[in-house]
């Protein structure tokens, strides 16, 4: 059985870590650093992607609904898709503002997320490889996504919406630091 945490036989309560952060600064940048943001073109990437999804869904979906259920449901369908795209339009701006990364001496810190907020700390020595990808829309806008891979699939550290040159430089910097500190698994 586990020893009791409190009550009868209290043990000296050593905190897991000193609560040095107020709750509202839990996702703020590391001490003495500021987040490096992503390009504002990232917003347009999200918006263009939303449109590219929304248009066919509105058109073909609307036609199918028109065929099956009639005029009013079809109109409602189109309105729903338009509203969803409108929300996507606003969320794109929030998502753009949420992304930030900071290169510390031994690890990279990335923070993002509109609804679910996330903060990832990836030590350079744990990186297996870094890659830069750019989808068609990203290529059109001249931006790219840098992705860090560790042995853990759950790490999911990526920085989207970086201008192409900046992405390549970041990748090279990360790869070099990874090489210096690499230690296998």
């Amino acid at each position: 059985m586990y020893p009791p945490e409190d009550g009868a036989a209290p043990r000296p309560a050593r905190p897991v870590a000193a609560p040095a952060y107020p709750a509202d600064r839990a996702f703020s940048s590391p001490d003495g650093m500021t987040w490096v943001g992503v390009s504002s073109r990232f917003t347009w990437h999200r918006r263009v992607s939303a449109l590219l999804w929304g248009l066919p869904v509105a058109l073909f979906g609307g036609l199918v609904v028109l065929w099956v259920a009639g005029g009013l449901p079809a109109l409602l369908w189109v309105v729903a898709v338009v509203v969803a795209c409108g929300l996507g339009w606003i969320v794109a701006e929030l998502a753009y503002r949420s992304w930030g990364y900071a290169e510390r001496s031994d690890d990279l810190v990335v923070s993002y997320g509109v609804f679910v907020k996330r903060l990832v700390v990836v030590p350079y020595g744990r990186m297996q490889y870094v890659d830069v990808t750019a989808g068609p829309v990203e290529q059109m806008l001249g931006i790219a996504t840098v992705r860090l891979h560790t042995a853990a699939a759950t790490t999911d550290a990526r920085i989207p919406g970086l201008p192409k040159g900046e992405a390549a430089q970041l990748r090279d910097r990360l790869a070099q630091r990874g090489e210096e500190r690499s230690m296998g698994l």
Binding site: V16, A17, A18, A20, Y21, P30, V121
Partner: peptide, 12 residues
Amino acid sequence: LGEARAIVEATA
């Protein structure tokens, strides 16, 4: 939340 961030920093 504040403790969580402190855990993250201390663990790193």
